[in-house]
Structure formats: structure tokens, C-alpha cells
Amino acid sequence: MQIGVISDIHSNIVALEAVLRELEEERPEKILCAGDLVGYYPFPDETVSRVRDVEALCVLGNHDFGLITDTPREFNRMAKRALDWNRRNLSEENLVYLEELPETRRLIIDDLDTFIAHGSPNHPIDEYIWKEDIDEEFLNRSFETIPDVVILGHTHRPYVQIIGETVCLNPGSVGQPRDGDSRASFAVIDTESYEVEIRRVEYEIDWVAEETEEYLPRQLAERLYEGR
């Protein structure tokens, strides 16, 4: 069975569509999303609707949480402005969808015990977990019963870390990569071979940048080209 894994879309519908086209070739049984559907870019309603269309199993990210509550004080000026704009341009139906997202999910997929959070198991909304943070101690501290697969987001940087019999992964960011590669990032899990592949796909950054500059800070558009 093939499983698609996405995260940190951040209202970038163009990048999301490019990723979904790539995933169509894999014919995944499920798509899992580690949060942050909204924020930064100017297509919040289209993005949430599309995620719902493909019936992705999502968790709540920190930007999603900020949109349905109050924009966090610790957000920088650009992030605050974008999130406030996203809130004003999201339908009531999609707002309710975000409000109902769980902070974590734990489910069995093709006999694999799978855990999903945006941040970390203990602080699912906003803790950054980097590849070097993941070791046996991290797993023992985070879980009473250690899953087969741990999926996290938030860092916007993809990785796969194998600890014993547990595969830990971050699919990177669909909508705003920060690892120096401007292409949208996602992952594919093969549940039979127990392998994970990080994938990248190009999309029309120019179009997203133009739309972003019309409504939101220019710096948000510029960083798409730099993958940072």
C-alpha cells in the first residue's frame, strides 16, 4: 500500500495541486497531512477545500490553531499579517473544518501503528523536532508504546530517521520549503517494503508570487524562490 504524506501547505494551492498530481501516479490508499493548511499565502479557502476533497487525514498545525483562535503574539509581522488575511478569506465551512481537526492522530494503516502530529508528541502544536533530536530516548520519552511510524511537520525541512524498528519522518513543506530547495516537498510510504521516499516537484512559483504580492508582504513571495 502506498501512503502520501504532506505538511505545511500554508495556503499555497498551486504547490498543493502539483503534489497531488504527482501522488495520483502512485494511487495512494490514503493521504496524511501533518498540519498547517493555512498561513503565509493567499489561497486559504481553495487549499482547505482541496485537502477535504482528497479526504486527507489531517492534524492541527500552529497556523491552523492561530487562525481559529487569536494570531499568536510570537508570530513575526509577516506571519501575523498573512494569518489575519487568511482568516478574513476563509469560508465558514472551512473554518469549522479547521476547528474540528485533532492535535494528534494515531491509527493503524496496513498493520502499521502510525502517529501524526504537527510539532511533537508531547507538544503537538508548536514544538520543533529536527532530525538530530530523534533517538531512542526521544521515542521512549514520547510514547508509552512506540509506534511503527512517526510523522511530524513544522520544521519545513524533510527527513527520514530510523530508530530501531520505528521510522520517523518529516515530509517537508508543500507550500514554503526551507531547506534551500524551492520545489514542493512531500513523502511516500510503501507499507509493504516499510520504505519512505522524500519527493520534490516543481510548480509555478511566479504565479503564486504575483498573487502574494498583491495582498501580502513581498518578502513572502521572494522566499519561495530561495526555499527558505
Rank of each mutant, 00 (worst) to 15 (best):
I13F: 00
I13R: 00
I13W: 00
I13N: 00
V14N: 04
V14C: 06
A15K: 01
L16K: 00
L16I: 00
L16G: 00
E17S: 14
E17C: 10
A18W: 07
A18V: 09
A18K: 01
V19D: 04
L20K: 05
L20W: 03
L20H: 06
R21W: 12
E22M: 13
L23Y: 03
E24H: 13
E24S: 11
E24Q: 14
E25H: 12
E25W: 14
E25T: 15
E26I: 15
E26R: 09
R27C: 10
R27W: 10
R27G: 11
P28T: 08
P28R: 10
E29C: 15
E29L: 11
E29D: 14
K30W: 11
K30S: 14
K30V: 14
K30G: 12
I31A: 05
L32E: 06
L32P: 11
A34K: 06
A34P: 07
G35C: 05
G35P: 02
G35D: 00
G35L: 03
D36A: 03
D36I: 01
L37H: 02
L37W: 04
L37K: 00
L37M: 07
L37D: 03
V38Y: 03
V38H: 01
Y40K: 05
Y40N: 01
Y40R: 04
Y40S: 03
Y41I: 05
Y41T: 02
Y41Q: 03
Y41G: 04
P42G: 05
F43Q: 08
F43P: 04
F43H: 13
P44W: 01
P44S: 07
D45Y: 09
E46F: 04
E46L: 08
E46Y: 04
T47M: 06
V48H: 01
V48E: 03
V48I: 06
S49Q: 13
S49F: 04
R50L: 13
R50Y: 07
V51E: 02
V51T: 09
R52I: 15
R52E: 11
D53M: 12
D53C: 13
D53R: 12
E55I: 10
E55A: 14
A56D: 09
L57Q: 09
L57E: 15
L57V: 10
L57P: 06
L60N: 10
G61Y: 03
G61K: 00
N62Q: 12
N62K: 08
H63Q: 14
H63E: 12
D64K: 00
D64M: 00
F65I: 08
L67F: 02
L67Q: 03
L67P: 02
I68Y: 08
T69H: 15
T69S: 10
T69F: 14
D70V: 15
D70L: 13
T71I: 11
P72G: 07
P72Q: 10
P72D: 08
R73C: 10
E74G: 10
F75A: 08
R77V: 14
R77Y: 13
R77N: 12
M78V: 14
M78Y: 15
M78T: 15
A79S: 09
A79I: 02
A79R: 00
K80G: 06
K80D: 05
R81W: 15
R81Y: 15
A82L: 00
A82S: 05
L83T: 00
L83A: 02
D84P: 05
D84H: 11
W85Q: 02
W85D: 02
N86L: 12
N86S: 07
R87H: 07
R88M: 13
